[in-house]
């Protein structure tokens, strides 16, 4: 692991217990867990955008929240600039939250409908004590609104979220994060609920903030084509584990893990002359993935299995420059 990483995650795990029925409880059935995040390690450099891509239920959102300690991890360590986040008490976590923030998926649900845009931002300013007095606060809010391109600021100042479009709401959400001058932002599907015509605008904004303030992003999405547009590196998750992580164009153009290959070829292309081919995958994602894996977790769906795949879980190994894969075939 490199030294200057803003964030370092080591062997992070989050298990959720599966609820048992009374009968199962009485018969003392063994405790079962959904392994939402199962031994994940990675690091994020300053100003880097690291994408986490996977299907729903692969644990990418849980992972993002666990890093910020919005959910307590089962085990593992998270370091922010060398400080171990996972062992901090609540007070210290709060002061650290200034530096580690989150942008949520649903811009309609994450803003208080009874507060105006300025109120929403001023609440953040007050909670974290960012300003001395009203003038300084207003100045700060005004600058932030300009930064997220809600201009002219007077026009948006007293508006309620209901009078904003989806894209504008998401900009308020980004402003609320930006006003704290964070170093690391977890963006959880920030554009999936927005219209196509405004999506790119939000992505451009994120990239501009990265360039201007050196903010690092963890960009969580199910959409490889937009991830390609913003991410420096992409990690592919399957059932709680990173199965491949590499620079973006390597993931898109030479995916090595069979799951990544299936995922890449499943992405629809906006070109009617491209024909759909058969997907190199079989079966479905299990409904409740409570199984303990002694084999490769992709084994049941893989088309290239060998005997060894059934016997042990392959580790994530480096196969090329900065390209890591968890598959025995990729050596």
């Amino acid at each position: 692991m490199k030294k200057d990483a803003v964030l370092r995650v080591e062997n992070l795990k989050k298990y959720f217990p599966v609820r048992k029925s009374l009968f199962e409880f009485m018969s003392s059935k063994k405790e079962e867990y959904v392994r939402a995040v199962d031994d994940v390690s990675f690091s994020v450099q300053e100003g880097e955008v690291l994408g986490f891509v996977g299907e729903s239920g692969c644990g990418k959102t849980t992972m993002g929240r666990t890093i910020l300690r919005l959910i307590e991890p089962t085990s593992g360590r998270v370091y922010y600039e060398g400080i171990e986040v996972t062992s901090l008490d609540r007070k210290r976590v709060k002061s650290l939250r200034r530096k580690m923030q989150m942008i949520f998926q649903d811009p309609h649900g994450s803003l208080n409908p009874r507060r105006t845009v300025a109120d929403i931002l001023s609440q953040t300013v007050k909670i974290h004590g960012l300003a001395n007095g009203k003038t300084e606060e207003d100045e700060l809010i005004k600058n932030t609104l300009e930064e997220v391109e809600l201009k002219p600021t007077e026009e948006f100042w007293d508006r309620y979220p209901i009078l904003l479009s989806g894209g504008q709401r998401q900009r308020v959400g980004i402003g609320r994060v930006l006003i704290l001058q964070p170093k690391l932002v977890v963006a959880d599907e920030p554009i999936s609920m927005l219209d196509v015509s405004v999506r790119i605008g939000i992505l451009e904004l994120l990239l501009r903030l990265r360039d201007k303030f050196g903010i690092s992003f963890i960009y969580i999405t199910h959409d490889l084509s937009t991830a390609r547009y913003v991410c420096d590196r992409i990690a592919i998750m399957y059932l709680g584990k990173i199965i491949e992580i590499a620079p973006t164009e390597d993931i898109i153009n030479k995916p090595l893990h069979p799951y990544t290959q299936a995922l890449v070829s499943a992405v629809p292309v906006p070109d009617p002359t491209v024909k759909m081919h058969e997907l190199p995958i079989k079966g479905y994602v299990p409904l409740i993935p409570a199984e303990v894996f002694s084999s490769c977790r992709f084994y049941p769906r893989c088309l290239h299995t060998r005997k060894k795949c059934r016997e042990e879980e392959p580790p994530l190994i480096e196969v090329g420059h900065d390209h890591y894969v968890a598959c025995i075939k990729a050596k």
Binding site: S197, E204, I252, V267, V269, D271
Partner: peptide, 15 residues
């Protein structure tokens, strides 16, 4: 404005 996974990565423009 529509990103694609195929071919060269091209610049996108929002409306």
């Amino acid at each position: 404005a529509y990103p694609s996974i195929k071919g060269e990565k091209r610049g996108l423009k929002s409306i």
